[in-house]
Amino acid sequence: METQEKEFKSIEVFNVTSDIYSQAITGELIGMSNFATLAETIDDPHEKMEAVEHADSERRHAEGFMAYAKKLGLNVNINLKGSYWNRIREQFLNYAAKKDFIACIIIQEVMLEAFAISMYTDAGNALGGASKKLFLSIAEEEKEHMDHSVELLQEELHKDPDTFIKKFEGIHFNCMTILSEFSARTDLKGHCGVCNGDCMKNALHHVNLNVDSLRGNALALYAKALDTIGIPGEKSIVWIAKLPA
């Protein structure tokens, strides 16, 4: 560990980089689990195979992060039962239990992916070097997932706009509330259970990041995804404004 830590400018940079990787790996494993669960909710064999494929894609992302974290000697903490990640997973499982394929897609492919794509992009650009390449390439793959799902959700909205928007609103408040609490300046529901030691938000400046821009960019991408799906801006702005901060 000592030899590896020397590659970092300071112990603070090492710690915050470790926490960023910990969150990314935990998030990918949550995504993998979600797609695996989703596969069980689908009857169509082709769609079932696609869900398994997506689960495998998230597994590969997690493995990619884990391999590079190992190479750097980072202090990685994977905790799928960490407070926020676990609550998001529970929300997903609730909808999966009802075989609500569309709700599962909204949670995994719009909400979680918007945050993943945006935060990977910001983190990659801030960390630089090989980390940048890794984070940005995974963000790019996640973006493809998101774009594909957005098309599917556009079709769903087109079938019955009022019902779809009402359903989306309910999912938004169930899930985005958790992501919003998680990404607030201070964790609104306590320690996440993934970061080593104190909350990494207090140390992000060591890698030229700050929680306001991470959160702002993530919510901006989420808002743009809602726009692309076709949810009226005057509705989505109210949904976003009502999130905890």
């Binding site: 919510l219 901006a220 726009d227 702005i237």
Partner: peptide
């Protein structure tokens, strides 16, 4: 809901993409 302080509104405001309000 509780009122958000100006500092929290400022932290998010200019990240919001242009959109219809009413």
């Amino acid at each position: 809901l509780e009122e958000l302080p100006i500092s929290k509104i400022k932290a998010i405001y200019d990240y919001i993409p242009p959109r219809g309000i009413f």
